[in-house]
Simulated assay, not measured.
Amino acid sequence: MQADIEIYVLSCPTENITAWLENTFTLVKKSSPSALCSKVTLVSNDHEIEVTILEQAAGKRFTSIWFDSDKTPWDDDIACAKQAFESLNCEVRCNFQGWEEEGNQDPDQWWRINSHGEGPFIWN
């Protein structure tokens, strides 16, 4: 189980992201600390999950969705990205292997899912 899950969506309005989360989980709290940042608290299997949605997180067109919990229903970032792509129908990117403190992975190695398919690629 991963400590947290983070995905990046391309050109996807925050309202669509919030609607996906509300359809997938029970939404208990929602706030907007800034113009580009929204925070929501979800409940999944009796666990509260804090989620931060940050627009323009990677360049102007990518929004980060960060699930700050090891209690999400997904095994890894890629599983989350697949569900997000199916629901949001916009390109989704995530770390290829999940983040590890002492991993030997290439930090530019990512997983991309879009209308052309999915697979690893270098994002730099």
Results as ranks from 00 to 15, higher is better:
residue 47 H to S: 09
residue 16 N to C: 06
residue 63 T to Y: 02
residue 33 P to S: 08
residue 109 Q to L: 14
residue 35 A to P: 06
residue 22 E to S: 15
residue 5 I to T: 00
residue 38 S to K: 07
residue 104 N to M: 14
residue 68 D to A: 15
residue 32 S to F: 08
residue 119 G to P: 03
residue 29 K to C: 10
residue 20 W to S: 07
residue 122 I to Y: 06
residue 5 I to N: 00
residue 102 E to I: 14
residue 68 D to Q: 14
residue 90 C to H: 11
residue 111 W to L: 04
residue 42 L to S: 08
residue 82 K to A: 01
residue 106 D to H: 09
residue 105 Q to L: 11
residue 79 A to P: 04
residue 84 A to R: 07
residue 27 L to V: 01
residue 75 D to N: 08
residue 40 V to A: 05
residue 24 T to W: 00
residue 63 T to N: 01
residue 32 S to H: 09
residue 17 I to P: 01
residue 111 W to M: 01
residue 71 K to A: 12
residue 50 E to S: 12
residue 76 D to I: 03
residue 54 L to H: 06
residue 37 C to H: 07
residue 23 N to L: 10
residue 94 C to Y: 00
residue 66 W to N: 11
residue 45 N to C: 08
residue 95 N to R: 13
residue 123 W to P: 02
residue 115 S to N: 07
residue 110 W to S: 05
residue 111 W to Y: 15
residue 37 C to S: 09
residue 88 L to C: 02
residue 81 A to P: 03
residue 45 N to H: 14
residue 56 Q to T: 13
residue 103 G to R: 11
residue 99 W to C: 07
residue 27 L to F: 04
residue 48 E to S: 11
residue 28 V to E: 15
residue 61 R to I: 03
residue 83 Q to M: 09
residue 107 P to L: 09
residue 57 A to M: 08
residue 87 S to H: 06
residue 62 F to V: 04
residue 111 W to T: 02
residue 47 H to Y: 11
residue 102 E to V: 12
residue 61 R to L: 12
residue 88 L to S: 01
residue 81 A to L: 05
residue 46 D to I: 07
residue 33 P to Q: 09
residue 35 A to C: 06
residue 1 M to Q: 13
residue 1 M to G: 15
residue 41 T to G: 04
residue 48 E to V: 05
residue 73 P to I: 02
residue 100 E to T: 15
residue 63 T to H: 02
residue 83 Q to F: 01
residue 121 F to N: 05
residue 64 S to D: 06
residue 58 A to S: 10
residue 97 Q to G: 12
residue 55 E to Q: 12
residue 62 F to L: 13
residue 53 I to M: 08
residue 35 A to T: 09
residue 67 F to H: 03
residue 32 S to V: 08
residue 18 T to M: 13
residue 34 S to G: 08
residue 3 A to Y: 14
residue 35 A to I: 07
residue 3 A to P: 13
residue 112 R to I: 12
residue 82 K to W: 00
residue 106 D to E: 12
residue 122 I to T: 15
residue 64 S to M: 14
residue 122 I to D: 04
residue 111 W to R: 05
residue 26 T to V: 15
residue 69 S to M: 11
residue 114 N to E: 04
residue 86 E to G: 06
residue 74 W to K: 00
residue 79 A to C: 10
residue 83 Q to H: 10
residue 56 Q to E: 10
residue 4 D to E: 15
residue 11 S to M: 06
residue 100 E to Q: 15
residue 62 F to C: 05
residue 94 C to L: 01
residue 57 A to V: 08
residue 107 P to R: 14
residue 4 D to I: 03
residue 104 N to L: 14
residue 4 D to G: 12
residue 77 D to I: 02
residue 27 L to W: 03
residue 93 R to Q: 08
residue 96 F to H: 14
residue 90 C to G: 01
residue 95 N to I: 02
